[in-house]
Design a protein around this nucleic acid. Structure first.
Lengths: 319, 319
DNA sequence: CGCATCGTTTTGTCCAAGACAACTGTTTGA
DNA sequence: TCAAACAGTTGTCTTGGACAAAACGATGCG
């Protein structure tokens, strides 16, 4: 194996056959892999190349695009800035260091509290038992709700940032995700009380594989004794409707990570809204929703997780 | 948020403002929306149309594809059968009822034990709390090891079969997976003892998303006091090597579901074997490995989960 | 008869350039 | 001051051709 190329090789979410040329895991990624990795669709990648002359991928023996690591890093940086409202045409000519400087605006790097730094260090040093212990300690001292809001949320974005800067390897980020999942699932199982209203169905649309956000929401809901019906990720719209009906859900909560295409999110939510009875509320959250400007009729956009408790109170007071 | 306002639904996924609602009785989805809820990529949808003359979407005033509901239903049915192993060319000309008949293969109504049937019924009736309770009861009476081998393994394949026969909806299978995950993760966290050798790294290759198998293995390993380092799914080969080194893993355990292409599994394992030090063992398990005829030098093929305990004993006796 | 190897068929992804809808920001006009 | 028109930007959809990888099936060998 050659250089460290911290990129997955998977062409498209879900479907298997025909992985790009030379399918040995670990080679340079093709356009499909970059799509999955950056959240920029194949169409967009090709269009930028035509329009802005970036990226300029190499070609394999068959003329297919091969993206070197530095271009992928720049694409990721651009993507992150776009999430904060920048427009591609304005920033695409800057180089990587300039992009990172742009990103280091006030809030991002700043108040990583001591306990966040401590956790980051444990992850970087691969001290698994200590990390678990730290999580459990925090959970016990803060309580589940504060643990999620004050520890898991900032730590997750800190890990994401560090990964984006290349300070963490892919496997370190995977490991972190697994550990948090374990702690949260454990806490949820423990805290689960007798069923009370409302009944909340939790899932995401197909191609959206990030489950951590859903788990955090579930934890917060369980704190307030709501009844959760977790479906995991990637449930087709039609199935969400059937599930909501079968479980008599009062609320359908969906999660969209930053990588999820905005337009698909919006149109998916609209069709879902049209297919569900008006008495069923829809809550949509996640990084993608934060940058969505227009609101969608009949859909509550959850921009930060601390809204959850309030929204739950609101729902109960009107039912 | 309560009132659904299904009037201004756009005829097309992404575009509407100028279009008066009057013109379109059926809010039909465009290619992007169909991709979203069938899981078939835009490229595939267009290719099938060219090659098999199905689907045959209508066109809107601007020449873009719009898919009527019946065609979407058929696409979904085809997709479901493909996941069962059918090939598109063979089934795409059948009509919807024929497709559904194909799905209902009454043949292998397996001789499932009473407790398996009980669980299946709870899933089908959407009785979540009862299902959880059943799992916990079984776990307590059988112990973790027997619970995994005698309950989770057969139940998982029974659920898979039922889903293939069309008796379970997608969301019901999702729900089952979530619940098992919750129970297993919980048990693992509880049973985790002080670190003992060997140290086992658990993960899968990119495109392999099934995490349940990994979780079962982890549970079995924890039963025998091994130290687990779970990385979740889809870790690129290069990252596996780095992680194994960082965590000084004695064993790297990989899971391959039935859908994983044999050839890729074999070649991936070979490169992995070449990149890891000889002192690090590789265990490969999952439905795909059961099919694989040739054995691979320096890779242990785990064909059934009950081998795990024995393999662990072997490892310990030689170290 | 089992089983490995070699063609053949099937199938999905990638390519190119063009068109245009939707979004953003700015300027003009009331 | 506000809104409507305009201009610039950006992403999605279009077509049809090419080809690699997976799956299938037939052949030859022990």
């Amino acid at each position: 194996m050659e250089k460290a190329i911290p990129v997955s090789m998977d062409p498209l979410p879900g479907r298997d056959p025909a992985v790009p040329a030379s399918a040995d895991p670990g080679l340079m990624p093709g356009i499909g892999a970059v799509e999955r990795d950056t959240g920029l669709s194949k169409d967009v990648l090709r269009m930028w190349e035509r329009r802005y002359r970036f990226p300029q991928p190499l070609r394999d023996q068959h003329g297919e695009r091969i993206y070197p690591p530095d271009q992928i890093a720049k694409l990721r940086a651009i993507r992150r800035l776009m999430d904060r409202g920048h427009r591609p045409g304005k920033i695409i000519d800057l180089d990587l260091s300039a992009l990172e400087a742009l990103g280091n605006t006030p809030a991002s790097r700043s108040e990583s509290a001591a306990d966040i730094d401590e956790a980051l260090e444990l992850i970087g040093n691969h001290q698994l038992p200590q990390l678990r212990q730290l999580f459990n300690l925090r959970l016990m001292t803060q309580g589940l709700q504060r643990f999620v809001l004050d520890t898991v949320v900032p730590l997750t974005s800190a890990v994401g940032d560090a990964w984006g800067r290349g300070e963490f390897a892919v496997f370190e980020e995977h490991l972190y995700t697994e550990q948090v999942q374990s702690v949260l699932r454990n806490a949820i199982a423990t805290a689960q009380a007798a069923s009370q209203a409302p009944r909340v169905l939790l899932t995401s649309f197909p191609t959206e594989q990030h489950s951590l956000g859903l788990l955090m929401v579930e934890a917060l809901l369980v704190c307030d004794s709501a009844t959760c019906i977790p479906l995991g990720t990637e449930t087709p719209a039609q199935e969400i409707v059937r599930a909501a009906e079968a479980h008599r859900a009062d609320i359908v909560a969906l999660s969209f990570s930053a990588a999820f295409p905005e337009r698909q999110a919006a149109s998916g939510l609209k069709t879902l809204r049209a297919s569900l009875p008006g008495t069923t509320a829809i809550w949509a959250g996640g990084a993608c929703m934060r940058r969505l400007r227009k609101s969608i009729d009949g859909v509550v956009q959850v921009r930060t997780l601390d809204q959850i408790a309030g929204l739950l109170t609101d729902w109960r007071s009107t039912h």
